[in-house]
Design a protein around this nucleic acid. Structure first.
Lengths: 194, 194
DNA sequence: TAACCTACCAAACACTTGTTAGGGAAGGAG
DNA sequence: CTCCTTCCCTAACAAGTGTTTGGTAGGTTA
């Protein structure tokens, strides 16, 4: 099965990219990890660039669908935040390597080649989802009104995605448990209430 | 003055490293940004590696001194957290490029060459400072007792340092203002209290 | 003036990079 | 058996990499 082999190679490529960085990774390292020679990769893929492209767009498609499902559920602002965070940590659990690559390389890739313009589009799309939810929460009295919405969004976004750099699937905390702890901090703070 | 020129070159190298990533940056790009030729850099520095080394160790030395000063002040846990966060954002303001490089490359560099072992040491040292403060706060009743300390530490750490990737000095928010907003979220949460 | 130091250039070096071309082994389909 | 597809290998390519070597213009010191 042709597609199956491609998928395997993409998975190992993603691991190497995530571990060493896209530019620092050579096609020979990917081939080594897959147990084949460098040139053989070009039977399956056009270029090294095509590999990251497939890895990232597959991840972003799935994340986009997840976010859309959450937004379409018609929840209140607080519940929407909870659902978005939980969905995000689930995506990290399933696409850890892709998230790490996106986190580190998205900016460079999007800036260099127009081919990766969809990375910027996705970022803007997710920003709208988050900012809209936060604004709705402030307007409706669910969230504090004295917060800088954009700063808060950046804090929330960064903390969620950076988790991909230390998260190891199947170790100690489940995605749902991490989401619960994280939401506890963001929603209620670490200070003890009187 | 010999040292002065070195400092200039290190500053431009840091900017290029931060913008394009260490591995993706060529010595010719650094030389271009400095207005000289690639080979001329080797009059001032042994290697490309030495440049990141100097950039990162200079930053970490200063950050370490700042953290030590905070810890030596004998503040309570909550005030220590506030001081650590404020100090961190001030360091981002002063060493934006170095922080970005540290954030992206520290793991790879430390894993590859023993020369960069001090990066791991610094990470452990900062972790102890944060974890100790959080534990002290929980024990003393300043912070909630139902939090996973290690998870909380990771959230706090990541959010602070990732700010280096979007922070631009002199634009809109001062380091102190960002620290204030951030502390407001972390300490008290974004949810409105009844 | 002569010797010297600083900061750079010009040109090349050995090596690594992504990529290509041609070929061949294995296995299923006719 | 023959044909065809899948998957990989061998071997090379041109371009780009970090680095070295020898030289030189200009200022400072003796």
């Amino acid at each position: 099965m042709r597609e199956e082999r491609r998928g395997e190679l993409l998975a190992t490529a993603a691991e190497v990219f995530a571990a060493r960085g896209y530019n620092a990774t050579t096609v020979r390292q990917i081939a080594d990890a897959a147990g084949i020679l460098a040139g053989s990769l070009y039977y399956h893929f056009d270029s090294k660039e095509s590999m990251v492209d497939e890895i990232l767009s597959a991840f972003l498609d799935e994340l986009g669908a997840g976010y859309d499902a959450v937004l379409a559920a018609g929840l209140g602002p607080r519940e929407t935040v909870e659902a978005l965070v939980t969905e995000s940590f689930r995506e990290i659990d399933r696409h850890r390597a892709a998230v790490a690559i996106y986190q580190k390389e998205a900016r460079h890739l999007a800036a260099r080649h127009p081919r990766f313009g969809y990375l910027t589009d996705a970022r803007r799309r997710f920003a709208r989802a988050w900012l809209g939810t936060l604004e709705r929460g402030v307007a409706g009295g669910a969230f504090r009104a004295d917060l800088d919405i954009r700063l808060t969004y950046r804090f929330v976004r960064d903390t969620v995605w950076v988790a991909a750099s230390w998260y190891r699937p199947g170790a100690q905390h489940s995605p749902e448990e991490i989401a619960r702890q994280y939401l506890s901090v963001v929603l209620d703070g670490i200070a003890l209430r009187d």
